[in-house]
Design a protein around this nucleic acid. Sequence first.
DNA 1: CATGGTCAAATG
DNA 2: CATTTGAC
Length: 708
Amino acid sequence: MCTNRIIVLIDMDCFYCQVEENLNANWKGKPLAVVQYNQWRGGGIIAVNYPARDQGVTRHMRGDEARKKCPDIILAKVPQVRGKADISKYRDAGKKVADVLVTFTQQLERASVDEAYLDITNIVDKRIQEGNDIITRAQLPNTLVVGSTTEGFIENVTQNRTFDEYNFKLALGGVIAEEIRRKVLEVTGYKCSAGIAHNKILAKLVCGLHKPNKQTILPQEAVPQLYAEIPLKKVQGLGGKFGNKIMQRLGVKFMGEVTKFSQNELGKIFDEKSASWLYNIARGIDNEPVNARLVSKSIGSCKQFAGRAALCEKQEIEHWLNELAEDICERLTKDMKENNRKAHQIVVNFGQDDEVHSSKSYPMNSYDKGRIVSNGLKIIEKYCAKSDGTYRITFLGLSAGNFQEFKKGNEITSFFKNMQNNAINRKSIENVSALTNAENIADDNDSIYSRTTEEDSSIDTDSLIFYENINPESVTRDNCLNTAAAESIMNEVNCDISRDSIREEINTYEGISPMQTDEFENNEKPQESFFIKYFSTHFKSDLDTLKSNSDCEDTNCNDKSLDSDCSIQCSYCEKTIVSSEYQTHLDYHFALNLVKNESEPIMNPRAQSSRKKPVSPKKVSKKKVKDQSQKPLDAFFKNIRVIQDESSEVCKECHKAVPISELDIHKDYHLAKKLHFEINEKQQSKGVKRKLHEPKGILGFLQSSTTL
DNA sequence: CATGGTCAAATG
DNA sequence: CATTTGAC
């Protein structure tokens, strides 16, 4: 059925202008436009408010033209940072709006900085179930309906609600949309418009019918009369070449005319997919789901250098790469804090002369401006240098993507999920490495995940152990590393512990261990949690290895042409690990062991086979662990149960109940967490040149704090 | 120089 | 993976 969903498109009215108006009280109500790069002909207009639109000012005008049309117009300038227009102000404002929208439903797709789709079907159904479904005119004060008056529509749906269920739901959707818009205004001070329909395309189309600060409902049966007067190019997806082709080949101008063509006829003109899409859209049918997504999938920064402004010298290119890298690094760092994730890929975009833009991507494992710039420069050199050594770069861009949730995760489920994602990602990085390795460009071309070349091109089994356990087709009780497994194990143990307790434990494992390690070694404080004991005994040898390797900057990491991390040998599997990946690698062992939950705490699946035994550090830690807890997970859960039996106090910092005996540790944890963040930050802001990249995560923290 | 800078998704 | 398209 094409009418079973209720979709709302929220679109902020001339958003950038509203942001400026709310920041400058005396601009309210006056004609205003937002301009960027205001030096040339008054700058380019990127937003116009409604008073200014009334005077004929439009986008695509320069500031000077706007002033001619409307002499008293206020031209708000987008600040310029690092030679580029800085739109962070509007990004932040957009996020505030999105934060309000998610409180209504998680079924939210941010379509741009100022637009979002919401699937409110569930909210509507719930209200009907609860009987909270009386619809009055007063609840739809700023609502219009395509094809009828709002009053008529309300009367119709309330009288025929059993025969006209879908329109009743649309009306209720309208009520909810009014509430959403009211809430957005109340919390953020921004006005918006909305479209309410049965799918995204229609909601979007109809949202633009009445603006600003209004919303429009589209009953499905009103589609034909709406389409009759809607230019085809107004429909989402038909504004470009495809729309032109349709108009030309079908000889149509309005959307409604497309229904004259059968699916077969369309199939002869367009490819299969386009044809059936068009056929459906022409009938108001669009099954595209609202893809729940709050945050962007990539963060990029780019700039044009048109015509004479083209970059011709390496120094210029490096300068701009630097500006772009600074921009994305700043935003990536912010993103990491806000969204608990890290980008693992970076794309260098460039355009030369009148050629089409090109792009090259490579894996990235740290937000290091210096390395991003030098790698970018290598790519530009390789692909853009002319025979005489000069350049003509007309476009330059950097974009980071392939985000994965940060290991410093919040729940045990995401902890395991990350292990899975990371491993999958490595598999793809592996392919990249094969390409970039030879060219000495990639960050990670010497990582353990690069497959060694073999004459018969079969898969290297040593590499395989890093993801064999997560192959969805071969998930077993023993070897899987995914969320389902973690949860089933939790069920098996039949624990009645809350997620918060687990999260607390995981965080403790991540944050507090340095202090606890010291204390543990001093044989004080016997009440550490399992994770702390586990870590401080189990990973101590690796810490030592790491420390002894800390001078490798002067030894094996001095290759001038190679921009890579220095490596460490893992004492559990003897693999050579890039130091910046070492934490991840250890986490892998950690999680693997945790999931196994068997009597023998073997860290490496390989060791179970007939392969030769690992070297001594492993034996040491293995023995220690055996003494303390033979079944890590059991011990972990047991530990928590004990804790929960005690009386507890609410922590002022996080407002969670903490057992009295754990209160000191808990407070230390908050302190450690803060420290941990600071250290991470320092690592990023350091303009490191050919210097050992300090390990991230807990080892980084350990090393920093123990060498201080 | 002259909308420009950011995004996402489809496609080969 | 790189390119193209489309939209704000």
